[in-house]
Computed example of a mutant assay.
Amino acid sequence: MRPILVFCLPAIGDFIRCHSAIQIIAATFPGHPIDVVTSPIAAPLARLMPHVRKAWIVERHWNPGLRERARLARELRQENYQAAYLLTSSTKAALVPWLAGIPERIGYPRELQFGIVNRLPAGWLRAMVAFGPRKTRLFEQVCAVAMLGEQPGGDMQLPEPRMVVPPEDLSAWRVRHGIDAARPALALYTSEFSNFRAWPAQRFISIAKDHARRGWSVWIVGGPREREAAAQIRAALPEAVDFTSTPDITDAMCQIAASTVFLGVDGGICHAAAALGGPCVLIFGSNRSYETGPVNDHVRFLESPVSTPSWIRDTRGVSEERVLAALADAVAHTPRLQGA
């Protein structure tokens, strides 16, 4: 069966949300291999996604020049793709499957790529001329491309993004880092404390200390942007483990998958934690979780009351007591962790 190519978004969180559309395409074309195109930082996550065969890498924001796009198109031409779904509206992205001669190039022509995009979802004109704030979430937009603009019928639920870390990878990661699988672990994703999406440093430290007193491991996950926050937490709690220097994002997925519960804020890593399926508590500014948060049903969102100052963005209205209660509830209602 001829394979299908899906052009995904480059940021980690956006790429993960594209997995909802990939699942729809896989159900529509059972047995057809599905490959994805995304950025270098997101591409390693493709191997953790059911239905994805492999990932092609392009520079983030589609910055490569015409020569680089032509080179990628020549490589894609050898794969004999049946169709390309363009989950991004970028003209630079749309040029690649056109140059590769992929017969069907499906997407919304938001940058007027008529001819380059040659199969338009139902309602494409209404979507192209819409003004004002977006009325649909990003994951609904990418699913609309996969469903050719058709609305979900009856009780149909759009699929949640999913990622799976192979058990052997998880076991190998525990061995490399000397992790005791029997000891509960709290994974913290803080973002930068100066970021409007973050929660105050002292509250993260208080939560970390509370769990450490009860015999838990505390792991700080993320990347370069979280290193300063990790240093602040470790200054107050030296036994906390700083994983923010992890060079490989798939290692970060092992950290999250191996933890007992994940506590984080708005950001790409929170989408990864949700897609991995473990207990997940997320702190968001008011009214932001619906628009930018993960869509996985098991996630517990904590938002500031709408009456607090700066209520659209600020997270200070979320108390430590609410977070502790949510963490305990998340663990208690996860079958694989009950009685642990």
Rank of each mutant, 00 (worst) to 15 (best):
E68V: 01
L99F: 11
Q82Y: 09
L87E: 09
A93S: 11
V36R: 02
R67A: 13
E68T: 04
E59M: 06
R60T: 04
T28E: 14
Q78T: 15
P64E: 15
A94N: 14
L99T: 07
S89D: 14
E79K: 13
I24A: 06
G101A: 03
P97L: 05
N80I: 11
A27E: 15
V96F: 00
R110E: 10
D35Q: 13
E59A: 11
T28C: 04
V52A: 05
T91V: 08
I41E: 02
T88K: 09
S39M: 01
A55V: 00
T38N: 00
Y85R: 05
P64W: 12
R105S: 03
L95W: 14
P97W: 10
A94R: 04
A42Y: 00
L48E: 07
S39H: 07
R53M: 01
V37S: 01
N80S: 15
P33S: 04
D35M: 10
V36W: 05
H61C: 04
Y81S: 08
K54V: 00
N63C: 06
I57P: 02
P33L: 12
I34K: 02
L95C: 11
R105Q: 06
G101I: 08
I25K: 06
R67P: 00
R47A: 11
Y81E: 10
P30V: 15
A42W: 00
R69K: 15
T28I: 06
L72V: 10
H32D: 08
N80F: 09
A94S: 14
P50F: 13
